[in-house]
Write a protein that binds this DNA or RNA. Structure first.
Lengths: 203, 203
DNA sequence: ATGCTACGATACGGTATCGTAGCATAAATG
DNA sequence: CATTTATGCTACGATACCGTATCGTAGCAT
């Protein structure tokens, strides 16, 4: 019966039937609104440019209420960062090269279009000085390397790669250049570039 | 006759003999002290954590004087960032693989030990929202990719690489994985990893 | 002696920010 | 209807920060 707001990000996994909602529906609404606006502000201004006052103004949720749900600014921002990002789908097309081509295209597409990628240096920087933030980021990062490991291991199982392949190194060889282009050299992430990286990595 | 302070960073190129020092020696001293302390603070707290008041406190240079030399905080920080970093030496050992091995070792060594690398995400983040900062960073970045391009082109000239080699892509394939490990996956940057990356990139 | 240049010390105006207190209000629950 | 719960609103206190203004001084050259 309850109208689900667009995001279920903050919901803890709930046993299906017997509800007994420990938190009011209003809570979920407030939290969702706050998290959404926080993410927007993160994209616009980066981690250190986001203020709680501005979140309150823009979300329509009173600052008081925000502090009723998060103990402080850092926790709120970490929470928002944790739900940033869109998951990669893991392809399964039968061949290593096919899977990697699809995955790399997906990934580079995300790097170039998704708004939230602009805030990643900000998050990493925060993690450079905040252990909890670093841990949060680590989980985020793993979500993106996991599909690569999966398709690589499948390729190994099919004998398309030698059994002694260094998987983390291969993941680095594939995704590293994309990160590099996006944030360090700032050259365009073209389709041709991605193809070239795959060619180099797989021979 | 003038006693040179440790750093000549801020000095404009000066015609050798007839001096006529447009800036006092005191100026050089103040600026050097301020830039040094600013760099330290950048390493500790990142771009947005540095305040002019703190720079003044720690350097012993009055805030007034700081604002006599830089128009505002952003310019000061950009100036400090521009002089951060240590240059790579370009090896010339006669073979592509030898040059790249030396260069990559040098580079990964720097990524893991140099204090200033911890502030790079901060700089990049600032660049996401500040054009001048982005331009400053671009020059910094080019200083590090240039040696790679040089040794690769020399290798091409020697016929160790096909003439149609995509140089920027190869640079990305080599350095990207190092960046990736240092900032994104945070796995250790071991010698074995570097060797593996070279093997993948050169076959 | 007289400038000139650069600097230091202090204080200030104005703004932004975090996090909290007090009180009123709307809605769900019994 | 009464009670509990979650929220809204306004106003603070405290701190930090930017950038400037004012006044006084030290060193050096003429």
């Amino acid at each position: 019966m309850r109208k689900k707001t667009s995001s279920e990000q903050t919901a803890a996994p709930v046993e299906a039937g017997q509800a007994a909602p420990v938190t009011d529906d209003r809570v979920r609404r407030s939290k969702a609104a706050v998290l959404a606006v926080t993410a927007d502000l993160l994209f616009e201004r980066g981690y250190s440019g986001v203020s709680v006052d501005e979140i309150a103004r823009r979300s329509g949720v009173a600052k008081t209420t925000i502090y009723r749900h998060w103990p402080n600014r850092a926790d709120l921002l970490r929470d928002a960062c944790a739900h940033v990002g869109t998951p990669l789908t893991t392809p399964d097309l039968g061949s290593l090269r096919g899977d990697l081509t699809a995955l790399m295209a997906d990934f580079s597409q995300m790097l170039t279009t998704a708004r939230w990628t602009s805030v990643l240096p900000s998050i990493i920087d925060a993690g450079e000085r905040d252990a909890e933030m670093a841990e949060m980021y680590r989980r985020l990062q793993q979500g993106y390397s996991a599909p690569f490991e999966t398709v690589i291991r499948r390729g190994m199982a099919r004998g398309e790669l030698p059994a002694e392949t260094d998987v983390p190194a291969l993941v680095a060889a594939l995704t590293g250049p994309l990160f590099y282009r996006r944030w360090f050299s700032r050259e365009p992430l073209t389709e041709g570039f991605v193809r070239e990286i795959i060619r180099i990595a797989l021979g």
